[in-house]
Each structure stands twice: as structure tokens, then as C-alpha cells.
């Protein structure tokens, strides 16, 4: 505080020290303004989801979060790899299955759940529930996601591994991408999720 009040001349700092300080202040001001520009120029926030599962229940969370984040103004990328590709496969996505095996939340003991035809029954039950509760279909969520600018990507390595063709996927799905581009997106993203 005392530095702000006029003091005797012998307490005044040397002119070189004042000049030094002024230069330092200008330097810091430039740095702050550069950083501010950098932050402001960052554009919209980003979210990346890596979708690796292809069962009916696991297909929902990535698509619901992706379309919601897009509604919040986020740039969203969902990178689908391994069984996650099934979600983007136009034909298979309408036929995703659900299994009670290894799922203690389902009311069927594993011994019985493992019997032939049980997955089909469990899936049918789940689909009925989805329809009754007016939850959107996977197809609808994919179309909504693409329409709202979500970048749905299909991992090229797993496309080849599973013997799929680019034409098997929904229109608007990005193909020809790999781990490096997914990683790069994740580095720049504010939110990264593995599903």
C-alpha cells in the first residue's frame, strides 16, 4: 500500500527498474492476451466416445450421449471398433441381441440363459420394453446423431477384420479411420469415454 503513496525522492525506484517492470508488464499482458485468444479460438467443446460393444443394451449409451452432447453444442465423434461396428452396420443394427448369460441383472439363471433360443427370447422381451416405453430405436438414434452433426466413425482395421464392406454402413458414417485419428481426437477432446 505504501508504495502507492508519494514518498520521498530517495525512496523512488531507479528509472531503469521502472522501465524493466514496465517491459515485464507489457510482456505478461501480451502473453495473457495470446492465451485468451487461444482459449477463445478453441471453438466448441469436444467429446469422443469409443464404442466397442455391439449388444442391444450397450448400443444405446453411446448414441444417447452423442446426440445429447450435440444438442449441447459439442463437437462429437464416436469411434466404433470391434463389436461396436454392429451399431453402424445398417442391417445388423436392426437385429442387435441381448444375452442373459453373465448378466446378474436379468431374471434368468445362467444355466437356463445358456440354452439355445434364450438370447432371442431375452432380446424380444427387451425390444417390447423399449417399444412400450417409447424409447427411440437404434436406427432412429443413428439418423438423429448424423443429422445433428455427430461424426460416427467405423474403425477401418475392424471393418477389414470382420469382413465388412464400407457400403454395409449407414450413409454418413465415416470409414477409413484408425486408432491414430481416434487418439488425436481424444487428445483435443474435453470428454473421452470408452463404452
Amino acid at each position: 500500500m505504501s508504495a502507492d503513496t508519494p514518498a520521498s525522492s530517495d525512496a523512488d525506484p531507479a528509472p531503469e527498474a521502472v522501465a524493466d517492470l514496465q517491459a515485464r508488464i507489457e510482456e505478461l499482458e501480451t502473453e495473457v492476451s495470446d492465451l485468451r485468444t487461444e482459449v477463445d479460438d478453441d471453438g466448441p467443446k469436444k467429446m469422443v466416445i469409443i464404442a466397442t460393444k455391439g449388444t442391444l443394451d450397450m448400443a444405446y449409451p453411446p448414441l444417447i450421449l452423442a446426440s445429447t452432447a450435440a444438442a449441447f453444442g459439442y463437437d462429437v465423434t464416436v469411434f466404433h471398433t470391434f463389436w461396436g461396428l454392429e451399431i453402424l452396420h445398417e442391417e445388423n443394427s436392426k437385429n442387435l441381441q441381448l444375452s442373459s448369460v453373465g448378466n446378474p441383472n436379468m431374471p434368468v439363471p445362467n444355466m437356463i440363459a445358456a440354452l439355445p433360443g434364450m438370447d432371442r427370447m431375452t432380446t424380444r422381451m427387451m425390444r417390447n420394453r423399449i417399444a412400450e416405453n417409447e424409447v427411440a430405436s437404434i436406427e432412429e438414434l443413428i439418423e438423429t446423431s448424423i443429422a445433428t452433426g455427430v461424426d460416427l466413425q467405423a474403425c477401418q482395421m475392424t471393418i477389414d477384420l470382420l469382413g465388412y464392406d464400407e457400403d454395409d454402413f449407414y450413409d454418413g458414417v465415416t470409414t477409413g479411420v484408425g486408432a491414430a485419428s481416434a487418439f488425436q481426437d481424444m487428445v483435443e477432446a474435453d470428454i473421452q469415454l470408452l463404452v
Binding site: 446426440s67 417409447e134 427411440a136 445433428t148
Partner: peptide, 14 residues
């Protein structure tokens, strides 16, 4: 009406 999460928010945005 009749649409469930996340559709109300997604369509509101649109």
C-alpha cells in the same frame, strides 16, 4: 409427446 430421452432435448435444440 410420446418421445423419450434423449429426443426431447435433441429436438429442442433443432
Amino acid at each position: 409427446k410420446g418421445q423419450n430421452c434423449p429426443m426431447p432435448v435433441v429436438k429442442t435444440r433443432g
